[in-house]
Design a protein around this nucleic acid. Structure first.
Length: 269
DNA sequence: ATACCGACCTGTCAGC
DNA sequence: TGCTGACAGGTCGGTA
């Protein structure tokens, strides 16, 4: 479900709804995959803590906390492929695959739901900066330097969270199309001009997707339960065999490291 | 250090 | 109707 624009939309929605609220108690489900910190650490950090704010770092949702006794801490949520963070009234039915519930002083509940269990919950004390560089604010020179000397395909480099964090399969494919670059090109062999186009198209695609509330491909919804609209603007992602909007050539799908990638064989060199 | 690949999970949809 | 296989927004650890 979630790449940078979706996580940004969810984090902003959560901030509006729960900033200033207090976590009174926490329930954790029996499955242990979703928990990256020990259950007692999560409960210890969350129970009694005030939510100062909610924001996005990379693909992570960060709840900034002020604990009951500890001064600060952060609740980090990664949604994986199918994770959702929803604000619910207590009487609402518990959805299948609910792994954590935080009961708030306002009477509402924050629920973490994740069928595939690729999502992760953790708590940290220190400031959370994420694994890589923020794609929305990275400057051109720093952007170019990230790829210097790398033999890996540019598509794989865009997905590498230690370089730029927040870019996933949709926005990698879409930004490469708009930059006219084939996904298998070696990252280190792209010209300065090509990287300049990619830098621009990536930020443009991400910002446009944020404006439209993200992409709802199958089940993504934001904190209010609303779908995004950027899927209507996809030019290559999941459009295998359909005509390119620019040149009518059928969009190709190839596999790299077990993941699908989509591109126009004529528009992308 | 770097790069590929399978593993981790469940759900949905198309085809037989 | 029901089975099977392909595919899905992501990351990790083992191996070359």
């Amino acid at each position: 479900m979630p790449e940078l624009p979706e996580v940004e939309t969810v984090a902003n929605g959560l901030h509006k709804r729960v900033a200033g609220d207090r976590i009174e108690s926490v329930w954790l489900g029996p499955k242990k995959e979703p928990l990256k910190s020990l259950p007692e650490e999560i409960i210890g950090a969350l129970e009694g803590a005030k939510i100062r704010g909610v924001r996005r770092v990379g693909k992570h949702i960060v709840f900034d906390l002020r604990g009951a006794r500890s001064d600060k801490g952060h609740w980090i949520v990664h949604l994986g492929m199918t994770g959702r963070m929803v604000v619910s009234a207590p009487q609402e039915a518990i959805a299948p695959h609910t792994h954590a519930i935080a009961r708030l002083a306002s009477g509402r509940e924050l629920r973490f739901v994740d069928p595939r269990r690729f999502g992760r919950l953790s708590v940290v004390r220190e400031e959370f900066t994420g694994p890589g560089t923020e794609p929305l604010t990275v400057g051109l020179d720093e952007f170019i330097a990230l790829f210097r000397g790398r033999k890996t395909p540019i598509k794989a480099a865009l997905l590498n969270q230690k370089l730029l964090h927040g870019v996933g399969n949709i926005y990698a494919d879409e930004s490469l199309f708009r930059a006219g670059i084939r996904p298998r090109r070696h990252a280190g062999r792209l010209s300065r001009d090509e990287l300049k186009r990619l830098h621009k198209s990536l930020r443009k695609v991400l910002n446009e997707a944020i404006r439209l509330g993200g992409s709802s491909v199958s089940d993504y919804v934001d904190a209010d339960g609303d779908e995004g609209f950027f899927q209507l603007r996809h030019r290559v992602y999941l459009r295998t065999g359909e005509p390119c909007f620019v040149c009518k050539t059928p969009i190709k799908r190839i596999e790299l490291a077990g993941r699908g990638m989509h591109y126009c064989p004529k528009c992308q060199k």
